[in-house]
Each structure stands twice: as structure tokens, then as C-alpha cells.
């Protein structure tokens, strides 16, 4: 009976693993399949021959390295700015009593109800006159705003995990409030800062619609836009596309794997209590 239960639990674990990983493995499998075998061995689990030709083509001859670089710039920029700004918001929410605090918190929650698709046109019209359309900075600004509310709540819960006495001790020891934040609190919050950074990086890396609408020049396209325009072309080259997709997956996967355990910690501290 006990053995059956154990086996059953392992079976469930493997089912989860298969569900999570099969699509990704398939991506890799197609990317490694030589073109001429794609249709004859399209549905077998692993091709008889594998090739890195698709990866070579994507890296050396396609515009994907440019897209890749653009996405890195935009995602890192967004992640850095959001982390700084959400630190400020989380700190203020966590450590101060002030007028309008509840209203501001509610406002940040309500932004999560906004239909993002409705904002595209108005945003375009706001960004165009200040020259932020078709720029990477424009994308950073937009992604920053979209990711800030959640990041702020995440940071808030990390701040709540740091005892107030620590910064009070520092302030008695001679620090200004800001010095206490920089020298005592932030070093202790590195996991939280890392989690927020990784979370936002991953989110910015995924963004599609605004990149699609705000970016028109080839040299500034992000990965999502590039890949999608690839799909649109007639005679899709599956292998190359999957190779590009596999490459696009690497940075967020690394970031996310690094932060996931801190994310669990941060959410425990209070983000989900609402």
C-alpha cells in the first residue's frame, strides 16, 4: 500500500516535470533537426541526426543578435530602474506613516485592472511629441511603469521582513535615515533586490505588444518583434526560428532560476496577504 502511494506520488511528480519540460525540449529538438529531416522525422521523439547549423545561421547571418542585444538593453534598463524606484516606494510604504498612503496603495493595485491594450494609442500619442517613439528608452519608460506596481509590493514585503530596530539603531549610531537605508537595510535586502531585478527582467523580456507598436526600425527591434516578423514571412524556416527561440529563452531562464527561491520568501512575507 505504502509502495503504491510512493510510486503514485513519483508518477505525479514526473507528470508535472513532463508537462513543464516537454514543450521546451521539443523546441530544442526541432532546432537541432537538420532541415531535410524536419518533415520525414517531424514527429519522432528525437531525430536520427542532429545539427547546429540552425544556431550558426541565427547567430552569424540573421539579425537576431541585434534583436538580442536590444532586448538585453531594454530588459536590463527596465529591471534596474524599476528596482530603484520600487525600493523607494516599498521603503516609503513600509517605514512611514503619511497622508494618502492607503489611497496610493489602492491606486497601484487598481492600475493592475487597466486593460493594457487600451493604453497603446494614447501612449503613442504622448510619447511621439517627446521623441520617445521608436527608441529603446521609450520602451524602458513604458515597461518601467507597467512593472513598477507589482515590484513595489514585492519590495514592500521584503522591507517588512527587516526589523525596524536595525535602522533605528543605525540612526542612533549617527546615520541619517538615508545612510541607514544604504548602509544597513539594503545590504540585508540583497536577496529581495535580486528577486525584484530578476522578476522585472523576465517580465520585460517577454513584452510583445508595445514593442510591436512603438518600434519600427529594424535596428531597434526586440526579440519578440523580430521573432514574430519571422513567423509572418512566407515559407517559415522552423529550424532557424526554434533555434532563435531557444536562444531567447536562455537569459530569462537563468535569471528566473537564480531568483525563484527568494521569490517564494518575498511572497511569504506579505505580498499575497493583500
Amino acid at each position: 500500500m505504502r509502495i503504491v502511494t510512493t510510486a503514485g506520488i513519483w508518477l505525479i511528480r514526473f507528470a508535472y516535470l513532463a508537462f513543464a519540460l516537454f514543450p521546451l525540449l521539443w523546441l530544442l529538438r526541432i532546432a537541432l533537426t537538420p532541415d531535410q529531416l524536419l518533415y520525414t522525422e517531424g514527429t519522432t521523439l528525437w531525430p536520427s541526426v542532429i545539427t547546429f547549423e540552425n544556431f550558426r545561421y541565427v547567430i552569424e547571418e540573421s539579425p537576431f543578435p541585434t534583436y538580442f542585444l536590444n532586448t538585453v538593453i531594454v530588459s536590463l534598463g527596465t529591471a534596474a530602474i524599476v528596482t530603484v524606484l520600487s525600493t523607494g516606494i516599498g521603503y516609503a510604504f513600509s517605514r512611514f506613516r503619511f497622508r494618502g498612503k492607503t489611497a496610493l496603495m489602492v491606486f497601484l493595485v487598481i492600475t493592475q485592472l487597466f486593460p493594457i491594450v487600451m493604453l497603446i494609442t494614447p501612449l503613442y500619442q504622448i510619447l511621439a511629441p517627446v521623441g520617445l517613439v521608436d527608441t529603446r528608452i521609450g520602451l524602458v519608460v513604458v515597461f518601467t511603469a507597467f512593472n513598477l506596481p507589482f515590484a513595489a509590493f514585492l519590495m514592500h514585503s521584503f522591507f517588512e521582513g527587516i526589523p525596524r530596530e536595525l535602522e533605528q539603531a543605525a540612526m542612533i549610531d549617527g546615520c541619517t535615515r538615508f545612510q541607514a537605508l544604504i548602509r544597513i537595510i539594503l545590504p540585508l535586502m540583497l536577496p529581495g533586490v535580486g528577486a525584484t531585478l530578476g522578476f522585472v527582467f523576465t517580465a520585460a523580456w517577454s513584452e510583445l505588444l508595445f514593442s510591436l507598436m512603438l518600434i519600427s526600425s529594424e535596428a531597434k527591434k526586440t526579440f519578440a518583434v523580430g521573432l514574430l516578423s519571422f513567423v509572418g514571412r512566407s515559407g517559415v524556416d522552423w529550424g532557424q526560428m526554434m533555434a532563435a527561440a531557444t536562444l531567447a529563452l536562455i537569459p530569462p531562464a537563468i535569471f528566473f532560476t537564480a531568483i525563484q527561491k527568494y521569490l517564494v520568501g518575498g511572497l511569504t512575507a506579505g505580498a499575497i496577504k493583500g
Binding site: P163, E165, L166, Q168, A169, A170, I184, L188
Partner: peptide, 8 residues
């Protein structure tokens, strides 16, 4: 402080 508030 009660919880000592030593910088960890």
C-alpha cells in the same frame, strides 16, 4: 533594543 538590533 529588546531584540538587540545588531547589524547581521
Amino acid at each position: 533594543f529588546q531584540n538587540y538590533a545588531l547589524y547581521p
